[in-house]
Each structure stands twice: as C-alpha cells, then as structure tokens.
Computed example of a mutant assay.
Amino acid sequence: MRFSVLASGSTGNAIYIENDQHAFLVDVGLSARKMEQQFTMIGRDLKKLNGIFITHEHSDHIKGLGAVARKYGVPIYANRKTWEAMDGHVGEIPVDQRFQFDMETVRSFGSMDVQSFAVSHDAVDPMFYIFHENGRKLVLITDTGYVSDRMKGWIKGADSFVFESNHDVSMLQMGRYPWSVKRRILSDVGHVSNEDAAVAMSEVVEQKETRIFLSHLSKDNNMKDLARLSVSQTLQSCGIMPGEFVHLFDTDAQKPTELVTV
C-alpha cells in the first residue's frame, strides 16, 4: 500500500492511496485541472482511479469532486447525510457513481479494507478513513476539534498517519481572524492545535517505525517549522523522542508528497 498527500491545507485537500490492484482518492479539494497536475507530479493517471471517498461537505474537500466525477466516471463513496449536504454544490453526479458508505463500517476492495470512523467537526456528518492491507495500517485524521478516546481506539497502532496539526494557539489568538472564527477553530468542532495533536499522537503510536505527516496546516495561523517543532517538543514531553521510531513529515497546500509505502 502506497500513498501521497496531494494537497493539504485551508485551500484544498486530497490524498491518494493505491496498492497493486486499486487506486483511490480521499477528497477532491482542488479543481479538476489542478488534480490532473498533482497526479502528473506523482507519476499517476486519474483515469485509473477506482473510487473517491469523501470525508465531509466543506468546499476545501469537495471543490473539484463534481468535475472529476463526471470527466472520469469514478465511483464516489460518502455517507447519506454528506451526500445530502453536497447536493447543489457538486452538480449532477450519475446515480451509478453514487455509493453510500455508512459511518463506522468497513468496505473491502480486494486485499484492501477501508474503515470509516466519526470525527468532531462542524460538518453535517464528518468521517475519516483507515486503510488496512496485509497487517499494515494507514490512518487519515484531519478536520477534528479534538481526538476522543473512541477515535484513539480506532486509529491506535497505525504504521502511517496523516494527522491534523492545524494551528498554533498563540498565532491564532493574536491573528487577524474575527473572534467568531477563532472561537470556531478552537472549539470541539473546529481543528486541533499543534500541541493537542501531539498529545493525541503520543497516545496512539506504538513502539514501531511510524510515519506521521503533519497536515491541514492553517496558512495564517501556523508554519511548517513551527508545527514540526511544537509537535516534536510535545512528543518529547510525553516520553517519545522523534527520530527514534516516530518520524515527522511535512505536507503542502500545493506540492504533493512523494509516494510512500505504508
């Protein structure tokens, strides 16, 4: 199983996952043209996609969904409430491309199992995904205001995480956003901070080689170096030394990561 974070941030999000038999996207938060460019950068072809999994209806996750779905005829998976919330925002998607993926269920695609789980975010019914194959586990968890014990139970022990590290609290508090937006981001249905993300990470990583890709960084209230430093320091305070078995990686709003084997 291999993956690339094609884009991650306030302006658009998309993650590519493949094995030898299947190729999937999680979210299409970029235009169809931009998605084609991202695929070219990792040496892959949108025409070979077998499915797209949607996490929730916010525009930075579905911006290009309608155009990509219609152009490439790809099956789309989302839960019922998310489908209802997307109607009117993604244009017409043929009925034979629309599939319901219920919360806290598993779908199998050959040797790959895809598991959905709930997060805490101000969308109608947000959920993220865990990919399993041959005893390896890839967790995607962004767009959540906190990481509950229930979430930790689902994601614990992954070999690779794409983990939200959205904002630095001080930058957010002193920044230009109106207080209503700051309050929303800091709430239990907003986004996790660097430090809160790291505390959650410390409780779900196991004593094995683990890659963590810091994702969904705010362009106004965070920086890559700051996120990495804050997460590293917090992990150390929790007794985990980054570089020993836990390795941190950046993601970018414009440039995809290299394809990584889970």
Rank of each mutant, 00 (worst) to 15 (best):
Y146G: 04
Q207G: 05
P94A: 09
E133V: 05
Q97P: 03
N134I: 01
I155T: 14
D143C: 15
P242T: 03
M112V: 10
Y16S: 09
I155E: 12
Q21N: 14
N134E: 02
S180Q: 15
E133Q: 15
N19D: 15
V199T: 02
D250I: 05
E133S: 10
F128D: 08
D102S: 05
E18H: 06
G153A: 11
L6M: 01
K71E: 08
H89Y: 07
L214C: 12
V28P: 05
K63W: 06
M174I: 03
D168F: 06
A197D: 01
I76Y: 07
Q254K: 05
W83Q: 02
S193P: 03
H89R: 15
G9Y: 02
V260Q: 04
V74T: 08
K156F: 04
Q37V: 10
M41K: 14
H191M: 07
E104H: 13
E258S: 02
D143P: 01
L186R: 01
V68H: 13
M1C: 03
Y72K: 08
M127Y: 00
K255H: 00
D196I: 02
I155K: 10
S215E: 02
K48S: 06
G243R: 02
Y77F: 15
G175D: 00
R80M: 12
D143M: 05
I141V: 09
L65Q: 09
V106K: 02
R228G: 05
L49N: 04
H247G: 03
P242I: 00
S108V: 01
N19V: 14
D250S: 07
N79C: 08
G12F: 06
P242G: 01
A123I: 13
E36L: 10
W179V: 14
P256Q: 04
G153V: 01
Y177Q: 13
S170V: 14
V189W: 10
R70Q: 07
A23T: 14
